[in-house]
Design a protein around this nucleic acid. Sequence first.
DNA 1: AATCTCAGCAACCGCGATCCT
DNA 2: AAGGATCGCGGTTGCTGAGAT
Length: 347
Amino acid sequence: MGRPPCCDKIGMKKGPWTPDEDILLVSYVQEHGPGNWKSVPTHTGLTRCSKSCRLRWTNYLRPGIKRGSFTDQEEKMIIQLQALLGNKWAAIASYLPERTDNDIKNYWNTHLKKKLKKQLQIGASNNIHHESGCSSADNVYSNNSINISRGQWERRLQADINTAKQALKDALSLENNESTMMTINNKHPTLQVGFSYASSTENIARLLKDWDKKKPKCEEYNYYSKCSSTSIQDSSNNAVAGTTTDSSNLSDDHHQNKSSGIDLSESFESLFGFESFESSTSEFSRSTSPDDVVHVHGQRKLVRDDDSNDHELALAPLSVLENLLLEHDQGKDFLNNFSFDENPDMF
DNA sequence: AATCTCAGCAACCGCGATCCT
DNA sequence: AAGGATCGCGGTTGCTGAGAT
């Protein structure tokens, strides 16, 4: 006797989103802000259930989303946070503000799981000659073959949890201004300082990037999702390489969109009232290379390389745990002594 | 060239939590 | 306080392209 699925309503569309639908959704959110998803279909005329709208916004259209390859640092963070938090993808995603939980989850399931298993096997084959006779590796990261007893493991885990708790406590007692801002930014993405819906525009622009190019090949919206993902990949690869999406690229896209007879970027301009679509850059649409991130008093800051200190931006809340995991011995110890034998659920 | 298999990812589904009346 | 509505999360599915046969 479960609740009837919300998307079972007659006439509700499923499957990949079309550019037109994206525009409708973004224009609605631009006007009303994210939330009250129930009213989105009625207000926009979208034949999508509210859930689908929310998901589309959260995972693809909202500002500040980075797509494409994960950096080594991101990968490490995911692995370490997953070890610490388990499959709490939303929690993990909160430490990687440019990534969505869905993205992280997919990356874990498709890449990291295998990668770790592989390393596990390598570890096992290394260990097999050891006197313990343990057939599987006790941890993935170290080939030290440190076999610790369950008691040791539990004590260490408890110590790590306590450390993490303390770190979180410390983080929560940061300056009021900072925490207030963080709270606002976390709870009300639409109000985020330094954000604008321009970045949504760019998200859609990315989605559309190859759509036009490949249009003759695949006419139906159905192909859009695939094409858009290609486009995402391309543009994000640039991002990873540390190059900013330059105006010429966007300009080209603009041209291509025009040549197709559907000037979608103009639609966006009118939607968002920008002078120029090309100039609609935002802090978070700008690619962030690891070099852009500095740590100031335990808080991650995004520093623009073109200007003064005024452009320091609070990048993510509670980076203390991140520091803990990435830089401190606790994090390393945690991983070094992590037993996959005793945590089979991880995989 | 055709078919099969696999990997990657966007989207969906169901459930628990939270909000609202 | 209760019950319905809505939201958010994690698991799963299904489509598509790429590579293998």
